[in-house]
C-alpha cells in the first residue's frame, strides 16, 4: 500500500540517464521546469512532453512506474482542473445554476493540468535516476558560490541527503507499524474523518519515537567517525563532467531553443 509512493525514490537501472553527472541532471531539470512556466502555448507543451518522453525512454524506467508517481498528486490535479474550469471568465459553453464552463476555462485547465503532470514527471525522473547521495553532492557543487555570503552549503546538503535517505526507511517503518497495529485489530478505513485521524495515533507515536531514535543513533555514529562539518572535507568520488554530459547539455540547449522559437516566434 504505502510502498506505492515513488516520490523521491531511486530506481535501479543501467542507462545513459543514470550515468549522467548529477549536476547535469539537476540543472537540466531546473531548466526544464522553468521552460514549462515561461510560455502558455499548446505546441510548447507538445515539445516539452516529447523531450520528457525521450528522456524517460533513455532512462529505462518503465513508463507505468513513472505514472505511479502521479498518484499522490491526483487530488491536487483534479482540484486545479475543476477550479480553472469553473472560475475562468470568457465565452460560455455550458451553464448550470451558478457555474458556467467557458472555452478559456477549458483551455486554462488543460494547460495547468499538463504543466503539473510534466512538472511532477520531470522532477520524478531526476530522483528516480539519481541516488540521493549524488543528488545532494550536485547541489553542494551548484550552491558553492553562496559560501561567500556564509551560507552553510555543506551542512544544508548533508541535511538534505540524510532527509532523502530516510524517506524510504520511514516509509518502510510506517508500513511495518501499520501492519503490526492491524494485527492487533486496528482499523484505518472505517468511520468518519475524526475517527480515522484518531486511528492513526497508534501509528504516529511509534513512528515518531523511532525517527528520534534513528536520528540519535545516526548523530552518534557520525560523531564516532569524527564528522565535524564541511571544513577541509574531501570527496571520495569527486564529480567530473564526461562526454555524455556535454551531449546532454547540447540536447538541452536544442530543446530550449525549440521552446523559445515555438513560444515566441511561431504562430501555430
Amino acid at each position: 500500500m504505502i510502498r506505492d509512493i515513488t516520490l523521491g525514490q531511486y530506481y535501479q537501472a543501467d542507462s545513459v540517464v543514470h550515468r549522467l553527472d548529477p549536476r547535469t541532471k539537476l540543472l537540466g531539470t531546473l531548466v526544464y521546469l522553468i521552460s514549462l512556466f515561461v510560455f502558455t502555448k499548446a505546441w510548447v507543451f507538445v515539445a516539452a512532453a516529447t523531450f520528457l518522453l525521450i528522456c524517460i525512454f533513455l532512462s529505462k524506467v518503465p513508463f507505468s512506474y513513472m505514472l505511479k508517481g502521479l498518484k499522490p498528486i491526483l487530488f491536487i490535479l483534479l482540484f486545479t482542473l475543476v477550479l480553472n474550469m469553473l472560475f475562468t471568465k470568457g465565452t460560455v459553453l455550458v451553464s448550470w445554476w451558478k457555474f458556467s464552463i467557458t472555452e478559456e476555462g477549458l483551455k486554462q485547465a488543460g494547460y495547468m493540468g499538463t504543466r503539473l503532470i510534466l512538472l511532477i514527471l520531470g522532477s520524478n525522473l531526476m530522483t528516480l535516476t539519481t541516488t540521493p547521495t549524488r543528488l545532494t553532492n550536485a547541489m553542494e557543487h551548484v550552491m558553492k558560490p553562496l559560501k561567500v555570503i556564509h551560507v552553510p552549503v555543506h551542512e544544508i546538503a548533508m541535511m538534505m541527503s540524510i532527509a532523502l535517505r530516510f524517506i524510504p526507511i520511514l516509509l518502510e517503518e510506517t508500513d511495518r507499524i501499520m501492519k503490526a497495529q492491524l494485527a492487533r485489530g486496528a482499523d484505518f478505513e472505517s468511520g468518519n474523518i475524526i475517527k480515522k485521524a484518531k486511528s492513526f495515533i497508534p501509528v504516529l507515536v511509534p513512528l515518531f519515537i523511532s525517527a528520534f531514535r534513528r536520528a540519535n543513533d545516526l548523530a552518534m555514529a557520525m560523531e564516532a567517525r569524527c564528522y565535524h562539518g564541511g571544513n577541509g572535507r574531501t570527496q571520495y568520488r569527486p564529480l567530473k563532467y564526461k562526454g555524455r554530459d556535454f551531449a546532454a547539455y547540447i540536447l538541452l540547449l536544442i530543446y530550449l531553443a525549440a521552446v523559445i522559437v515555438i513560444g515566441k516566434f511561431l504562430n501555430l
Partner: peptide, 11 residues
C-alpha cells in the same frame, strides 16, 4: 501475530 521487535509498536 507478534511482529519482530514488537516493542517498537507500543504507543
Amino acid at each position: 501475530l507478534v511482529f519482530q521487535y514488537p516493542e517498537y509498536q507500543l504507543f
